[in-house]
Design a protein around this nucleic acid. Structure first.
Length: 420
RNA sequence: GUGAGUGUAGCUCAGUUGGCAGAGCACCAGACUGUGGCUCUGGCUGUCGUGGGUUCAAUCCCCAUCACUCACCCCA
């Protein structure tokens, strides 16, 4: 029996776990301010959902999903991303019909069977949001403004927003054809990987990091020049709205996304110099996904996801262990353990973080423990005090101890708690 | 899936051209026997990742295997 976690999965322990909770709380607060409400979907979905939504030929679907046959013979998959489930749930329940655009956010684990490395786990976590029911450029700008504000307030510096438009089914095929043709002419100048990529996903060649490919594609046709009228207008309006909102950004016509469902606006928040895992959050518009999943009508939508592990990594350590206790009970002998336990439960009920040692250790040991716990006050329960109907009240910060009646000690403690 | 590196005490890591396995931190106990933080003294803790092989002898050399880390691929 090994106690180790499954490869690519991690136990998140205190004090690290506290960073997670506070980041999640901050995300919730931001999301609620923008009018998003939480949705919780199952971790397990029919395999078909992801195959259709994410794209049959994507790496995620082809080789990274945790897929299995359940006891009834159905093929199920542990979710590799969040959007597909949220769209399914939206179509199934139509929450907020008639109230205008519907805004939903989620927080939770995703699973992809990849080789783990820095900033990439098999179980990783995303905080994401989806905005349904409008293709207004303001919606695009809103989601990016939301992200920009959240990342900034989280304390993340040096992050930049890159935006692109992938066009729609009307204009993208034409661009793809042009690009394929262009790449075919330069086949010899491309790296081995890209020569393979050329056929399957020509856009990806533009994203290659190898020197030769960057040189070979320097004057490749830009998708932004190939957009149809409506897509071009939409993109221009998104850029305008971003500027209005005061969100800095730059165009990146070479940006590629790994999921097939994106169309028109796509964007990434990247940290320069972070290596291959430099994307901390990304998203885009997916106006055709609802229909692809069998929805009766077109539901324009846009969304994004933040990589929690990556964000926490970028925010740095800073995990300070908060004090474990406000007050610690010390006994001079095991005979006072019941009395101390009564104090402890009473104090916890009144809102204190109270702790004590159950093992009957030496006082030295108990005090050491009290010190480590961060307790500001120690209550000493012992023979001498008890004889006079009192307790010892020790101010740990000042090292001053007094003998006072029990009720007086309680009153003082309440004062300490109020001060925080 | 491909490549490289690492695996020794709870934690961080030394180590031996192959010869009874170490330090710091942490923990426990004590320093005029009811009191923390500093100092000092003493103590506890190891399948040296796992399984084979070579050898009088392997933590060290060889093979395999597993795990972790980093990079590639790809992505949040």
């Amino acid at each position: 029996m090994t106690l180790a976690t499954i490869r690519g999965m991690k136990d998140i322990l205190p004090p690290e776990s506290a960073r997670w909770t506070s980041l999640e709380a901050s995300f919730r607060a931001h999301a609620e301010r923008y009018g998003f409400r939480e949705i919780r979907t199952p971790l397990l979905e029919r395999t078909e959902l992801f195959a259709r939504a994410v794209g049959e030929t994507t790496d995620i679907v082809e080789k990274e999903m945790y897929t299995f046959t359940d006891r009834s013979g159905e093929s199920l998959t542990v979710r590799p991303e969040g959007t597909a489930s949220v769209v399914r749930a939206y179509l199934a329940h139509r929450p907020g019909t008639g109230d205008g655009p519907v805004r939903l956010y989620y927080i939770g684990p995703m699973f992809r069977h990849e080789r783990p490395q820095k900033g990439r786990m098999r179980q990783f976590h995303q905080m994401g949001a989806e905005l349904f029911g409008t293709d207004a450029p303001y919606a695009d700008a809103e989601t990016m403004a939301f992200l920009h504000g959240f990342l900034k307030e989280s304390g993340l510096g040096g992050v930049s927003l890159e935006v692109n438009s992938l066009g729609d089914p009307g204009c993208r095929p034409a661009y793809n054809a042009r690009l394929t043709e262009y790449l075919a002419e330069r086949d010899g100048e491309l790296c081995d990987d890209c020569r393979r990529r050329r056929e399957r996903n020509p856009l990806r060649v533009l994203d290659c990091k190898s020197e030769r490919c960057i040189r070979a594609t320097a004057d490749a046709p830009s998708i932004l020049d190939s957009l149809c009228g409506p897509c071009r207008d939409h993109f221009a309006a998104v850029e305008g709205a971003l500027s209005t909102a005061g969100v800095p950004f730059s165009r990146n016509p070479r940006m590629v996304r790994g999921l097939d469902y994106y169309r028109r606006t796509t964007f990434e928040f990247v940290i320069p110099g972070m290596g291959a895992q430099n994307t901390v959050a990304a998203g885009g518009r997916y106006d055709g996904l609802a229909e692809l999943l069998g929805g009766k009508e077109r539901v324009p939508a846009i969304g994004f996801a933040i990589g929690v592990e990556r964000l926490l990594m970028l925010l740095g350590e800073g995990a300070e262990a908060s004090p474990a206790a406000d007050v610690f009970l010390v006994t001079t002998s095991a005979a006072f353990l019941p009395e101390a336990f009564r104090w402890k439960t009473e104090l916890v009920r009144s809102g204190f973080r109270a702790d004590m040692d159950y093992e009957g250790r030496s006082m030295k040991s108990q005090f050491r423990r009290a010190d480590r716990s961060g307790a500001k006050v120690v209550i000493v329960l012992g023979e001498e005090e008890s004889r006079r109907g009192a307790v010892g009240y020790r101010d740990m910060g000042r090292g001053i101890q007094e003998e006072i009646p029990a009720e007086e000690a309680m009153r003082r403690l309440r004062g300490v708690l109020r001060e925080g």
